[in-house]
Structure formats: C-alpha cells, structure tokens
Amino acid sequence: MTYYPKTFLLLGSLFLFCACTNRMSIDKLKDQISSKLAEQPGNFAVAFKDLSTGEMLLLNDQDFFHAASTMKTPVMIEVYKQAAAGRFSLNDSFALKNLFSSIVDNSAFSLNAHDDSDTTLYQHLGEKYSLYNLVYDMIIRSSNLATNMVIELVNAHNVTQTMRQLGADKIQVLRGVEDSKAFDKGLNNVTTANDLLVIYEKMAQGEIVDNASSQAMIKILLNQEFNDIIPARLPKDVKVAHKTGNISHVLHDSGIVFLPNGKKYVLVILSKNLQNEANAKKAMAEVSEMIYNYVITPRES
C-alpha cells in the first residue's frame, strides 16, 4: 500500500475543490440563464466564450434560427474579403436603387421603405453612395436597401462559402431582404448561435481577412444604434461591437463585448416563436447582464 504525505493530500483536495467550484460556477450560471429564459414563451439559444480564459457556455447553440439581420455581419465579412482580393474598393461608389431580383425566378421586386429600419436612403435613389457607407448603414442602422445592394455585389453564395472557410458550418445566406417569393418557398437565411460565436471570435482575434480588416469591421459594429439587448444593462464604459436582428416573433443579438480592463468575450443570444417580444427582450438583456457579472467576478484559484 502506498502512503502519501498529509500535505500532499491536502493540496490535492484543495485543487479538486477549486476545480469543481469553477466548473460548477459556469454550470450554475447556465442553470440560472435557462431558468430566466424559460419564463418567456419561445425558444432561445445562447453562446458565450471568454476570450481570456477560453471558458464557454452553450445553450441550444446548434439549433437553427431564421438569421434575420444577423446575416449582415457575414455579408460585411465578404465585402472586406473581396476588397482585400482587389475586386473593388470600399471607396467605390454605386447609384442607389430599389429594384432587385428574386432568387426564385429572377423576377423584379422592390423594398417598402416603411418596413425598413433606415428610411433615409430611399430619399436619395439614383444618387451615388460609397460601398463603405452602404456597409456602414447595413450594420449600424440595419438598412435593408443597403443590404440588398451589397448582397447583389458580393453574391450570397460567396458569403456562405466564406462562412464555411471560417468554420461556421451551418450559417446559410441565400438572399437579400423581402424576397417574398423565396420566403414563400422556405428559402431563408439561417444561423446558429455557435456559428455566430465562431465568426465573432475570429474577428476579435484579428483572423478574418487580416487584422486591419477585422479591426475595421469591429469599429463599424461598435457604432451599432440598436442597443436594447446585449448592451442594455451593461455599464457605459463597456463597449459592444454587435449586430442585432429581428422579424416577427424573432429577436437576436450577437457580438463582442470589450471590458475596460482589456478583457473581451463573445456573446450570442437568439430567439424565435416569441409571444411577447418586449418581455423577451428584457429577459435577454438580463441574461447579458448575468454573463457580464460572471465575467467580472473574481474566481478562486
């Protein structure tokens, strides 16, 4: 029989206790988040990763959701990729238009300005607008008009292919916005919480196209004007580079959270089949706050 010194046994026990404490802490957080979201009728997914420690929390992260406007981040990524390849410059200008082709039969359709979160571009149809400004409006104001022009330029198939190259295996960008014929046939853009986590992590690490491109995209995302979910309950000195998405009964938010001490984490919160969107939005903002509090709370070591 082998005997171990009491000091060795004590240190081993303390190590196991601390390891279990840390592990149970993230499990307890997951339980609390699940309970919070269970109060709201609907389906939710959460994906969180602390980029300093690698610690993760995943809840329904592989479930499919209608991407809504979260797909605009993959579209922006494709723009920067093609610009880096020399296909065009972000300073190139394009005439604003409101006529697009359905992916079903190439028939023409137009967007309704009243259904767009950004109506300003419709007042300038025919005028030249830089590609950078189109991308900027697509992200910070979620302009559908800008989105459809940009997707027509870069091609939705290329967006999806780039997502696969980045390791996002389920995001699918098929089309622009308000293609009703495609919608009627179930041809929709889809995503998972895990795939959005993958692309935002790579962006945060400067690994999408190159570091300069990643930082340029983050700078745009930091100017997001819709801040009702991830940033809503966080301190003002916490910065969030993110993209939201919403359609009927669907609310999403996804991005990178930057803390004043230099730490950063990725957070994705998706939802569908909502019955009360205002209550769901509040609960999702509370989940973001719970994760923030978890990250800033010192751990025993």
Rank of each mutant, 00 (worst) to 15 (best):
M71N: 12
L57F: 03
L96C: 13
A68V: 01
L51K: 13
P74L: 02
G86R: 13
Q82Y: 07
L51S: 08
A47W: 02
F88S: 09
V46H: 06
F48S: 07
T70I: 08
A68E: 12
D61L: 02
T53N: 10
Q82R: 13
N60W: 04
V46C: 04
L96N: 11
L90C: 10
V79L: 07
G86H: 11
K81N: 13
A83R: 11
T70S: 12
L58R: 14
G86K: 13
P74V: 02
D63L: 07
V46K: 03
E55P: 00
I77N: 13
V46S: 04
Q62K: 15
L59M: 13
A84E: 12
T53G: 05
S69D: 09
V79W: 12
S69L: 04
Q62G: 07
D50S: 03
D50Q: 05
Y80M: 09
S52Q: 14
Y80L: 09
D92L: 05
L58K: 15
S89A: 11
A67R: 15
D61C: 03
D92K: 12
Y80R: 08
A85M: 09
V79H: 13
R87C: 08
E78G: 06
Q62T: 10
L51G: 07
A85L: 11
A67I: 07
R87L: 12
E55G: 03
D50H: 04
A83W: 02
D63K: 15
A68T: 04
F64C: 08
V75H: 13
A68L: 02
F88I: 01
A85Y: 08
T53Q: 09
F64R: 15
S52M: 06
A68N: 11
E78K: 10
L51M: 09
N91P: 00
D50Y: 00
K72L: 01
M71R: 13
F94H: 15
D50T: 00
F64W: 07
F88N: 07
D63N: 11
N60M: 05
